[in-house]
């Protein structure tokens, strides 16, 4: 465990020694902030409209659902932004170490490859988690000024974190295979995009294939979380995807030892 923490500590700090972490966190907060603003203002407009109509017909205004109208779409947007942000977080993970030769230091130190992979994963995931939890101010505003259900918000966050963990696993795996950061980022992005779009493919296919596409789609699994429904099946999907990709990253690093 101490070995994992050693790698974790260095990796996590390294995000802040380059502009990467600042750019990524800034981008994430700005984008989610813009969406939040747009969603709340259209919600306000809608609510005012309702009130105005209700006044005309001398009736009390119908109840509106904040969860439905602001939070659910907000979480969908956060999940889209994740798609762009994760490759930026993981692109340097192994690629940089391969390029500068520092991987040789790690691989000749008394520490296992599994510990290295785990440390790197945790560093990326921790950065992601910090970033995601910072967006918590938006739901907090709603909670302060409105009356949303809090539980669905918490569940949605579990979904965001789960999806992030699986995406980061993919990113670490790709970075273990190349020493080029750009290829690492692009490769991760393409795979994540595929896992997104594959949900739509399922609409054009039938039978087993449709079910399969739906199953491997990252978004399909996120929908329930965004709706505030907690389903361990969906969580298992993220956990298994993360586990499998980290295993592949491990194998890829081990294979360098055999080949080069």
């Amino acid at each position: 465990m101490r070995n994992v923490m050693t790698v974790f500590g260095r990796d996590f700090r390294s995000y802040f020694s380059s502009p990467v972490a600042y750019v990524v966190i800034g981008l994430f907060l700005v984008l989610t902030g813009v969406f939040f603003y747009l969603l709340t203002s259209s919600f306000m407009q809608y609510a005012t409209n309702l009130q105005w109509q209700a006044a005309r017909f001398r009736q009390p205004p119908p109840p509106v659902n904040v969860n439905h109208m602001i939070l659910r779409p907000l979480f969908s947007n956060i999940s889209v932004i994740t798609l762009f942000v994760v490759p930026m977080i993981t692109m340097r993970s192994f690629s940089d170490e391969k390029k500068t030769g520092t991987l040789e230091l790690l691989l000749t130190s008394p520490i296992t490859t599994a510990q290295i992979v785990l440390g790197k994963f945790l560093a990326a995931f921790f950065l992601y988690a910090v970033m995601v939890l910072l967006t918590g101010v938006y739901p907090l505003v709603i909670i302060l000024f409105g009356d949303p259900d809090v539980l669905p918000v918490a569940i949605a966050y579990i979904g965001v974190l789960g999806m992030g963990a699986a995406s980061i696993g993919i990113g670490i795996w790709i970075s273990a295979m190349t020493e080029n950061q750009i290829i690492s980022a692009m490769g991760t992005f393409v795979i994540l995009l595929f896992l997104w779009l594959v949900g739509w493919f399922s609409n054009f296919t039938t039978g087993f294939l449709a079910g399969f596409f739906e199953y491997i789609s990252i978004v399909e699994h996120f929908d329930d979380f965004a709706k505030g429904i907690f389903d361990t099946g969906h969580l298992m999907y993220y956990v298994s995807l993360g586990g499998i990709t980290l295993f592949l990253a491990h194998q890829s690093i081990e294979s360098i030892r055999w080949r080069s």
Binding site: R2, N3, T6, G9, R10, S14, S17, S18, T100, G101, T102, L103, E104, L105, L106, T108, S109, P110, I111
Partner: peptide
């Protein structure tokens, strides 16, 4: 039981010398 200096010194250029040696010390338990 081995200390290894590869052909290309495995340095993290953005770290200070002490930070780097601290990391190396922990890696070597």
């Amino acid at each position: 039981r081995i200390g290894y200096l590869p052909e290309m010194p495995p340095l993290y250029l953005e770290m200070t010398v002490n930070e780097y040696l601290n990391f190396a010390a922990r890696l070597k338990q």
